Computed example of a mutant assay.
Amino acid sequence: MTRSPIARLRHRLREACAAAGVTTDDRAKLVLAVTLLAERAEHPPELSTHAGNGRLAVTLRLPGLVGQDHRNALPLLPDAGDSAVLTWHLPAVHDAATVPVDDELATREEMLALIARADTLTQEQRELKHELAETNSGVLAMYVELEERDERLRQAHAVIFRELEDALRPPPPHVDAFDLAVHYAPSEPDSPTGGDLYDWFVLPDGTVHITLVDAVGHGVTSTRHALTVTHAIRTLALEGHPLHDLIARAAGTLATIEPGLMATVLLARLDPVTGDVTVANGSHPRPVLVTAAGDTELLVPSIVGRGIGFPDPGNGSLVGRTLAAGDLLLLYTDGLTESRKNHQEGEGRLLAAARRHAGESTATIPGALATEMHDIVLHADDTVVIAIRRKPAP
């Protein structure tokens, strides 16, 4: 696959950081800073790197001047000055091993590092505000300044998360046999991340794997937990572990790493040759199948499974169907059906709405369902809707 100029720029940065032994945290901030600058530039900037004396020097030559105010807004500050040439110096380890750079894995590592950094900064701000609140009125001016800094921090977090949205929510994989579409809506407009995440990719045997996760909680902690689950399941799936074993195996793996993590999980496998779909469900809302003839069905397992962090985690029994041409499968998180605080009523409304919208293009169905289901919102929650339709055979 041909990389875009910005993707090639990130790849070169990661190669230089790997060869010099730069930490993941420093690499994440550097890659994000260079990406923000490159996206604003009219032409691709020039990049050069040099390692020596325990430091990695990274120089970026842009087509226009970059003011100090713009530099100060970057997640990793370059050397001071107003010019079109920016330089960063990062601590390096000379004896670091040179290994091939996997951009997808590197992006996930950088996301985890940035989210953890944001989480730490938020906690430090909260503790500082609490300490100031216990002091006398003589620190009122300092408190006001802290509030302003806190607002700037929230804005900076929003910029970081917007830049990470593409990586957190990957575009649909290209599969000739299926049309795939997704809609995501956060519970709060100014907080573009939450605990609802999805992942989809094509396995070496040609089948399509889809993971849908709803981590318990809100904010960056739930985002980190959901990302941890999707990454663990992707790794296990690519290692060849069978579908029926993935949820329980991921739960066992994560129990010692993230003991407080709880998440519902839904896994789906699509065979582009036969149209077979197999679903593994761990405490997640049940998928909806709408046939080309307009019949609807909830895919209910005979043995109910439990999610990660729940007692006896696993998927229970698998549910299998064969999609005919035109059949529509809907996967979603509970934010879609619980906006009125009644899950059963929400399922009934979803079945009726799915029948009404099934004739529309696949790309518009997820957003149309979310709009109709959220006509009344008594309980706001993150919402993901994935639509899968089997295409007619060529």
Rank of each mutant, 00 (worst) to 15 (best):
S4T: 15
P5D: 07
H11F: 08
H11N: 06
A19F: 05
A28R: 07
E39T: 12
P44Y: 11
T49I: 02
H50R: 15
A57E: 12
V58Q: 10
G64H: 13
H70Y: 06
L76P: 06
A80D: 13
G81V: 10
D82C: 08
H94M: 06
E104I: 13
R108Q: 13
E109P: 00
E124V: 11
R126G: 08
K129I: 11
K129M: 14
E134C: 07
L146N: 06
R154A: 14
H157I: 13
I160R: 00
R169L: 15
S191Y: 02
S191L: 10
L197V: 14
F201P: 09
V208A: 07
H209L: 07
D214M: 12
T230F: 02
T230D: 01
L236E: 02
L236V: 03
G240M: 05
I247G: 10
T256P: 00
R269I: 11
D271A: 02
V288T: 02
G305T: 08
G307Q: 11
G316L: 02
L323D: 07
L328F: 04
G335H: 00
L336W: 00
R340D: 05
N342E: 09
G348H: 15
L350S: 10
A358W: 06
A370L: 10
D375E: 15
L378H: 10
L378W: 03
P392T: 15
